[in-house]
Design a protein around this nucleic acid. Sequence first.
DNA 1: GATGAATGAGCGTTCATTCAT
DNA 2: CATGAATGAACGCTCATTCAT
Lengths: 191, 191, 191, 191
Amino acid sequence: MAKQDKREEIVRAALELIAEHGFHGAPMAMIAERAGVGAGTIYRYFENKDVMIMELFRELEERSYPLIKEGYAPEKPHRERFLHLNTAMIHYFIEYPLDYRFIEQFFNSPYGVAHRRDKLLGTKGGCDVFKELFEEGISQQVMKDFPIAILFDLAFGPILGVARDHILGFIELDDDLIARTVEACWDAVKR
Amino acid sequence: MAKQDKREEIVRAALELIAEHGFHGAPMAMIAERAGVGAGTIYRYFENKDVMIMELFRELEERSYPLIKEGYAPEKPHRERFLHLNTAMIHYFIEYPLDYRFIEQFFNSPYGVAHRRDKLLGTKGGCDVFKELFEEGISQQVMKDFPIAILFDLAFGPILGVARDHILGFIELDDDLIARTVEACWDAVKR
Amino acid sequence: MAKQDKREEIVRAALELIAEHGFHGAPMAMIAERAGVGAGTIYRYFENKDVMIMELFRELEERSYPLIKEGYAPEKPHRERFLHLNTAMIHYFIEYPLDYRFIEQFFNSPYGVAHRRDKLLGTKGGCDVFKELFEEGISQQVMKDFPIAILFDLAFGPILGVARDHILGFIELDDDLIARTVEACWDAVKR
Amino acid sequence: MAKQDKREEIVRAALELIAEHGFHGAPMAMIAERAGVGAGTIYRYFENKDVMIMELFRELEERSYPLIKEGYAPEKPHRERFLHLNTAMIHYFIEYPLDYRFIEQFFNSPYGVAHRRDKLLGTKGGCDVFKELFEEGISQQVMKDFPIAILFDLAFGPILGVARDHILGFIELDDDLIARTVEACWDAVKR
DNA sequence: GATGAATGAGCGTTCATTCAT
DNA sequence: CATGAATGAACGCTCATTCAT
């Protein structure tokens, strides 16, 4: 097995197990076993479990960002841009349910809190289309004049919810339902 | 200490510690110590830690239900009822941040999933005003025709989000902001 | 087994194994096994391995001090007092070879260095007859005018050495040999 | 890098790290890194870590021997020879504190014991001036009639002690203090 | 020969649960 | 009933050693 493969196997195994059982239900030994590597091998690629988890999240972000931004046109109206982003996000979650489950776990952890803080305060570089969209939407009086954090909650809270419900089998999302759900989120944020 | 007192002390201690440090940061021994009882005593009241956690959630629900339903008038218009419930829920979370933190932990665990399933499928008795309201709202064409689960997500996803943001200090909720946030949620579900 | 017995068993087992194999050759699990207790039990009595080692040393000191001071008469001449202390110390080491081996390990570790520093600087309470004897011996011009640390080395370095050689079987100490060895140490420090 | 250089780099790195952090604070990988070689390379020169440590000690002995014997005149009086050797030894330790720290570690380990046994029993060739000096000193009734091992302890125990105290900063040795210390050791062994 | 990634046994430590008192 | 000392499996992590390249 090549070096890069090994790392990928570890990442895959960690993602699967953490998505399935949560951080505490995914011991390093179990991750190693599923990855088909020795327990110590993981530590050649990640300093420790916490670092591995943060790195995993970062990779997921990097992987999902292009998918979500694909076809995104900054010159289009706010509504269209909003619908695009939210729709893309649901699709991403549905297509990569493991990613979704992992991200859910991540947000619900101390790291998730820190990450959210960074994002809201914009201290992590201006790479965030969402924040830009919201700030622009507010200043142009297209969106409700809320603190950014609340707009995030109105826009993405439901998205995470329906993605989870779909993945858990509570609902069956199709393109129509997705479109209507996203439109409902727009109703929440639009003026 | 009377038997009931003991149980209450355990519940209080567990709630505090789990809210503060998460499930895994709240060992049974620590809970026992804070409750002022022996470690073994907890097992007289709860079969094991998992059962205790589920029981705890149930008690929280029971405790919060009257607070949220207080002043709720089934004969009022759907909009007013919706605003009432969501506003009450935000207030409850803000006033009892420990409850909020615990509930957040709970939802983000295998039990949370089971609980949600029961609720959506209505197998846990008809004690749910929310479900009633949504079903009525749909049938009377006041609310969007979504699966109940999605209405839940649209209505409560953002509520949980803003409560968290307030508790974590990202935003500062006041009555005006709460009212506007709840109204935005209504915009999402209303037809 | 009573609680005190358990602690004593742990102390005994730790002393034996550390004396025999050194700090790193005495895993907690092995200590627990030899003590006839569970691995976790040790941690009810000692916060962690380091603390256990320091505590062990402290107990050894407490145990040996009376043995060494027994019959010590501060009013006797310096020479007699010196001979008494050093003789008592050799006897103690010979009679409790495990104690000796442990102490040797301890001195040869970061804790030993810290302990020596405390002793030399006298920051650990004035309970030290040795230091008193040396300081008095110097000021009354009975002993050579060395820094205290060097007097310690001249007086005890050889003692530790012959104790080890006896315990390891390189020499066979008897009362005569002990007396002559101690006298030789006196020759080193006396003026 | 030539083969011999590689070995020397390994020896140097191992000496430094073991002196600084002890046997257990000097992993093979760290030694390899500091030596600028691959981890596996060490095993081309030394069968395993234990062997490496013993070899290291042997090299230190070989290296220090000439320094200590330099200027040593077997025809001079015992006292002068003794003073010469002990003084040279202190100087060696002070000048090469890493060597001292390593040797201290070594003596305080199972290998140290084996080494001492070999030396005392004289099974390792007659390369030992010390032993010769002591045996001669005894037979000519210049030194006290002790087993060789005890003479070693009287002569070198204090030397190791003062060297350590100097290296650790407890005392500040100068030529005068060294001379007086060595003279005190002579007082201990001389008849 | 030289490498360094891979290994996995072994470490110190935690904690849900039990059970003698 | 209540206790809390005792347990031991399981955890995250280290590192001496190996071996394919």
